[in-house]
Design a protein around this nucleic acid. Structure first.
Length: 354
DNA sequence: AATGCGGGGTA
DNA sequence: TACCCAGCATT
C-alpha cells in the first residue's frame, strides 16, 4: 500500500504533472527559501509576482540582508501576514552574520532561522539538499487523510504528530525532493479541497475516502473560526503638502505597517458625532481644523476580523503637535508600506485628496 | 494547547 | 457566507 502510494505519486509527477512555477526545480537555497516564505498560507498564483519582484530586487541573500527594512516591507505590501516579512529580513541577516552568507544545510540549523518552522525547514532541506525530511502542509494533510481515511483533527497536536509520522514513513529513500514536490502538486491539482478529481485520480482504486464516499468530510478540523467586527476612523490630517502617519507597533493586525491617525470605535459611529467624542478631542485637542471631505466606508475581510474603515480629510493651516505621528510629504507616501484598506483609499482618492 | 495573523479565490 | 491557501510565533 505504501509502495503503491509513493510510486503512483512519483509516476504522476513524472508523466502528468503540468503545474509550472518559477521556483520549481530551483537548487539555490536562497531562492527556495524566498519562495517558501512567500507561499506560507498563500496560494501559488498570489505569491508568484512577489517572488519575481524579490528576486529582481534582491538576487542574493547578502543584498536582502543589506536592504532597509522599509523598502522590504514596501515590496511585501499587499501580501499579508507581515510578520513573515519581518522574520525573513531577520533570517537574511542571521545567514550573513552567522553563516557568512552561506545558507545553512541541515534541517536543525535551517529551522533555527526566524520564520522557518517544520514545514519550511523540510521543504528547503529536501529541495535544496535532498535531505530526507517529509513536508507536511495543507496539501499533504488532505491527501493523507483521504487516502488512509484518518479523521484525527489536523489542527490538534495529536493530529499533527500522527500525520507527520505517517508522512515521514512514506518518504521514499533518496527521492525527497521529487516526492515532496509530487505530493504537494497532487494535492493542489487532483486531490483538491473542493471538487477533487477522483474520476481521473490514479490513487482512487485504493483511496479509502473515495471508496467510503468521505472525501467531502476529510480532512477534519476541530476548531471553528470566530470573526469579530472592528470600526476604524482615520483622520487624514493635512498640513500644506504633508500628512500625518505612524507605524503600527502594537500586537495587533498590520504590525509594522503604516496608517493615518486612528480612532477605533467599539461600534459604528456617525462621523459628525465622532468629532465631539472624547477620543477625537483627546487627539485634536483645541487644534483648529477644517473638515474637507469624508470618505465612504471601506470594508476589508480578514481571516478572523472584518474591518470597516472611514476616512476623514482634515486640514490645518498651522503645523500641530501630534505625538507618535510623523508628518510626511504626500509624494513620499510610496516609501511606506500600508495595509490594503489604506492603499485602496489612496488609490481611489489620490486625485482629489490633496 | 490555544490564539492571532492578510489577502484573495472558490463554491 | 464558509473554508482554504507550500505555516509560524507567541502566549
Amino acid at each position: 500500500m505504501k509502495q503503491f502510494f509513493t510510486n503512483t505519486l512519483l509516476e504522476w509527477n513524472k508523466n502528468e504533472n503540468t503545474r509550472s512555477m518559477p521556483w520549481k526545480g530551483e537548487k539555490d537555497p536562497y531562492r527556495i527559501w524566498l519562495s517558501e516564505i512567500i507561499l506560507q498560507q498563500t496560494r501559488v498564483e498570489q505569491g508568484w509576482a512577489y517572488y519575481e519582484k524579490f528576486i529582481l530586487n534582491y538576487p542574493t541573500v547578502k543584498e536582502l540582508a543589506a536592504a532597509p527594512e522599509e523598502a522590504v516591507f514596501r515590496l511585501w505590501q499587499g501580501l499579508g501576514y507581515y510578520a513573515r516579512c519581518k522574520n525573513m529580513l531577520a533570517a537574511a541577516r542571521q545567514i550573513v552574520s552567522a553563516y557568512h552568507g552561506h545558507f545553512p544545510n541541515t534541517y536543525e540549523t535551517i529551522q533555527s532561522l526566524k520564520g522557518i518552522g517544520p514545514y519550511t525547514a523540510a521543504a528547503i532541506a529536501s529541495f535544496a539538499f535532498n535531505l530526507p525530511h517529509a513536508v507536511l502542509d495543507g496539501n499533504v494533510f488532505r491527501v493523507l487523510s483521504r487516502f488512509f481515511d484518518i479523521d484525527t483533527p489536523i489542527d490538534s497536536t495529536a493530529g499533527k504528530k500522527q500525520f507527520a509520522e505517517l508522512a515521514q514513513e512514506l518518504l521514499p529513500h533518496g527521492l525527497s525532493a521529487s516526492y515532496n514536490q509530487s505530493i504537494m502538486d497532487f494535492g493542489a491539482v487532483v486531490c483538491k479541497h473542493q471538487q477533487p478529481a477522483c474520476h481521473t485520480c490514479p490513487l482512487a482504486g485504493k483511496c479509502k475516502a473515495f471508496q467510503l464516499g468521505l472525501t467531502g468530510l476529510l480532512p477534519v478540523k476541530a476548531k471553528k473560526l470566530v470573526i469579530r467586527k472592528r470600526y476604524f476612523y482615520y483622520l487624514v490630517l493635512q498640513y500644506k503638502d504633508q500628512v500625518f502617519i505612524r507605524k503600527r507597533t502594537e500586537s495587533d493586525i498590520w504590525q509594522n505597517l503604516h496608517e493615518f491617525i486612528l480612532i477605533e470605535a467599539p461600534a459604528p459611529e456617525d462621523v459628525t458625532a465622532l468629532q465631539s467624542t472624547a477620543a477625537f478631542k483627546n487627539i485634536m485637542k483645541d487644534i483648529r481644523y477644517n473638515t474637507d471631505a469624508v470618505s465612504g466606508t471601506f470594508k476589508q475581510q480578514l481571516t478572523h476580523q472584518t474591518i470597516y474603515s472611514q476616512f476623514l480629510m482634515l486640514s490645518v493651516s498651522k503645523k500641530p503637535e501630534m505625538p507618535g505621528y510623523m508628518a510626511v510629504p504626500r509624494n513620499q507616501l510610496d516609501h511606506y508600506a500600508f495595509p490594503k484598506t489604506i492603499t485602496d483609499f489612496l488609490g481611489n482618492r489620490e486625485l482629489t485628496l490633496f
